[in-house]
Design a protein around this nucleic acid. Structure first.
Length: 720
DNA sequence: TAACGATCTTTTTTT
DNA sequence: AAGATCGTTA
């Protein structure tokens, strides 16, 4: 058998990882070391060389994107369909199990997935019903708390509040929330995992069956697993299961949402002896970038220890630019990008990375002004848009009348005269009789609702029943079309003719389209298509902004940059308080996570890396003087090159500890940040200086007339 | 019931 | 500064 195509382009440790027969393997895969390749080649190897049935392999990832990429690559390698092979996110696999074993899991067959938005509404309701002050118990915080408990594998009944008032209230809310979910047949994200883990614990026969089925379990991004995911994996693995995990402790950046890097060590201890394979050869970045990143990450105490190297080129030094403020920072970065594009680089090979989303603004404004196409990652995705969610809520009611979250969402949207007062009474009554809102609404006048309110609810019920009847024996696509057309949302938006409403109508039409394109997975094909479509919508929120695939400059947070790579990377806003973020500075553990985030950012770059910081930045309304990030100082200085304004290299811009000292005066006494007066334009601040002698010009931000470029020889600016 | 104004808040994000 | 949320008012 010719197996060369699976091994030829691998280095020795990669090859060892792909072919190893140890019962427990741990691959510590540095950034850019070919992690995905190892994972996919191993699966292909198992199937093609070891002749394992795809049916006996389970591969788990964190994102749908990673799962899709893995499946795609495996199919290409094997040149066959991967039917039977389970590749998916923790959540999608747990979901699949629950759909198959809903009875054993104690769920109604039609259970629906509650996304975080619905979850928040439900939590809010539970708080209201307890008559607690939402200021004392903010819904997002309660939601966060509940999810954290679930991620730890704890149910309300398992938590001992020990007389602590706050804690016991939280437990009570958790309890109410569980009851509300139960009543409506709803399962939130964390619940998917918790339930299926309980399925393992409560159904030993079923568990054994799966343990025997999966001879191989592969887990990607192991450093991001939380306690529940760890338990889930451990329970599922039988004594003959071969475990293959891939992770990188230096890229653990999700501790704040419950991920436990320690799971790596824990795995190593619990499954000893574990074969540890380190992938340290990097195929992405220049040696300079790697050395710099290594130098930085060495400042962390808690490490497995690993040193990335490359046999590629030394590459350019990392440039460091000290901007006057965030606008000037944007100007510098975008000038550089424009220059590289002029040199023939692709726009989408430049990425601007930042710590927090609000920083994208200055960049976006300038990119827009200069007509450079760009794409900002993050933000609302298709299935998260309000109108799409409304449409889905109608569908959910059609599928399951007891879905209270969906009921609340659309009962008066579009407005049909069911006001808050009515809803309040309805909620109270539903709670009293412990029934869903839908059921309670059916006999409004019987429990004392005014004739008018009861009538309005009646009409709403009839509408839903009617839609359901029309959808009864049609295809999924037709059901969705019927629902969207009949629910009244289209008319509601069509009435108003602004651009926004136009877009909403289009999105609803797109939802119909999404339904007709939807193909259930093989295992799901015999289940109710509407339910699986709704789950799909919740589990996979869709493309970010599937806008035209024109090549765009990429803007994103450092977190969303993980897993991506670009020729040219700008690491911006490298200032104390912003990055590392002020809320992380106190705790050593958090600070180390910030440092790993910086490491992740740096290692995204293939060719060039540029680090920028502003000496003054407008944040939350006021301008403050900032100092450069400690991370800049932690990068070995010999890999850095400081850049002056427009390429004039003189005294170093950056000196540790200095803030505004870098604004060097020019020959005629003007310097950045200088307050000046102009005969016609009034007072202003110097934002930029370029050229010298008779060709020197300065950019002044005037308080009256805005920003102007002026030739210094003619402007006659008076320093103030 | 909707619309307006006051008040509050502000890291990172997937499922 | 800006956006979301909330309570009050017309």
């Amino acid at each position: 058998m010719d197996i060369s195509h699976l091994l030829d382009d691998l280095n020795p440790p990669q090859r060892e990882a792909v072919t190893s027969t140890s019962p427990a393997i741990m691959v510590i895969a540095g950034a850019g070391s070919g992690k995905t390749r190892v994972l996919t080649h191993r699966v292909s190897w198992l199937i093609e060389v070891e002749r394992l049935s795809p049916y006996s392999i389970l591969a788990v990832t964190f994102t749908n994107k990673a799962a899709a990429e893995m499946r795609g690559r495996i199919e290409t390698q094997l040149n066959m369909s991967t039917r039977g092979l389970w590749v998916g996110t923790f959540h999608s696999i747990a979901h699949r199990l629950l759909r198959m074993h809903w009875r054993e899991a104690g769920l109604p067959q039609q259970f629906q997935i509650l996304d975080s938005d619905d979850q928040k509404r439900l939590v809010k309701r539970v708080i209201r019903e307890r008559e607690l002050d939402p200021a004392h118990y903010p819904p997002p915080q309660v939601q966060w708390w509940i999810n954290n408990r679930k991620d730890e594998g704890l149910r309300a009944a398992n938590i001992d509040a020990e007389g602590d008032h706050y804690l016991s209230t939280m437990v009570q809310l958790y309890h109410d929330y569980e009851a509300a979910c139960e009543r409506g047949g709803m399962v939130d994200f964390a619940e998917l995992l918790l339930r299926s883990n309980e399925l393992w614990l409560n159904q030993p026969v079923l568990l054994k069956q799966y343990q025997e089925r999966f001879a191989h379990i592969l887990v990607d991004e192991f450093q991001d697993t939380n306690a529940l995911q760890y338990a889930w994996i451990r329970n599922l693995s039988g004594k003959d299961t071969q475990m293959f995990i891939v992770g990188d402790d230096d890229q653990a950046i999700y501790g704040w949402r419950g991920a436990l890097v320690e799971n790596i060590t824990r795995y190593e201890q619990e499954l000893a002896p574990v074969e540890v394979i380190k992938l340290e050869q990097n195929y992405r970045s220049t040696q300079t970038i790697l050395s710099a990143a290594n130098g930085l990450i060495e400042h962390n105490q808690e490490r497995h220890g690993k040193n990335l190297w490359s046999d590629g080129e030394e590459g350019e030094p990392i440039t460091l630019y000290a901007a006057f403020n965030e606008q000037e920072e944007a100007r510098y970065v975008i000038d550089q990008i424009e220059a590289s594009i002029a040199d023939g680089a692709d726009r989408d090979q430049s990425a601007i990375l930042y710590r927090s989303n609000s920083q994208s603004r200055a960049f976006e404004e300038l990119l827009m002004q200069r007509n450079i196409p760009y794409r900002v990652y993050g933000g609302l995705r298709f299935f998260e848009r309000a109108e799409v969610r409304d449409g889905l809520a109608y569908l959910r009611l059609v599928a399951n009348r007891n879905d209270d979250a969906a009921f609340e969402r659309v009962v008066n949207h579009p407005p049909r005269g069911i006001g808050n007062r009515t809803l309040e009474l309805l909620r109270a009554e539903a709670r009293r009789v412990n029934q869903s809102l839908w059921t309670t609404a059916q006999n409004g006048s019987a429990w004392g609702l005014s004739g008018r309110a009861a009538g309005a609810l009646q009409k709403f019920s009839e509408l839903i029943e009617e839609i359901a009847r029309e959808c009864a024996d049609t295809s999924l696509a037709d059901s969705i079309e019927t629902t969207i057309n009949r629910c009244g949302l289209l008319e509601h938006y069509a009435g108003q003719r602004s651009e926004k409403e136009q877009a909403r109508v289009e999105n609803l039409e797109e939802l119909v389209n999404a339904g007709s394109l939807y193909q259930p997975d093989d295992e799901e094909s015999e289940l109710d298509p509407l339910s699986t479509f709704l789950s799909h919508a919740a589990l996979e929120a869709g493309e970010n902004q599937g806008d035209a695939w024109e090549k765009c400059v990429q803007l994103m947070t450092l977190h969303s940059a993980k897993g991506l790579e670009f020729d040219q990377v700008f690491l911006t806003g490298m200032e104390e308080g912003l990055f590392p973020h002020s809320r992380s500075i106190e705790e050593p553990g958090r600070l180390e996570e910030e440092r790993r985030l910086c490491y992740v950012g740096m290692t995204r770059a293939r060719q060039t890396l540029c680090i920028t910081h502003a000496e003054a930045r407008r944040l939350h309304g006021d301008t403050r003087i900032t100092s450069p990030s400690r991370f800049i100082r932690e990068i070995p200085a010999d890999h850095l090159r400081e850049v002056r304004i427009r390429g004039q290299v003189e005294a170093p811009v950056y000196r540790p500890g200095s803030s505004l000292s870098s604004a060097q005066p020019t020959a005629n006494g003007l310097r950045l940040g200088q307050l000046v007066a102009h005969a016609k334009f009034g007072e202003g601040v110097i934002m930029d200086i370029e050229g010298d002698g008779s060709r020197q010009r300065v950019q002044v931000e005037f308080s009256e007339v805005g920003s102007k470029w002026l030739m210094t020889d003619y402007a006659n600016l008076q320093p103030q």
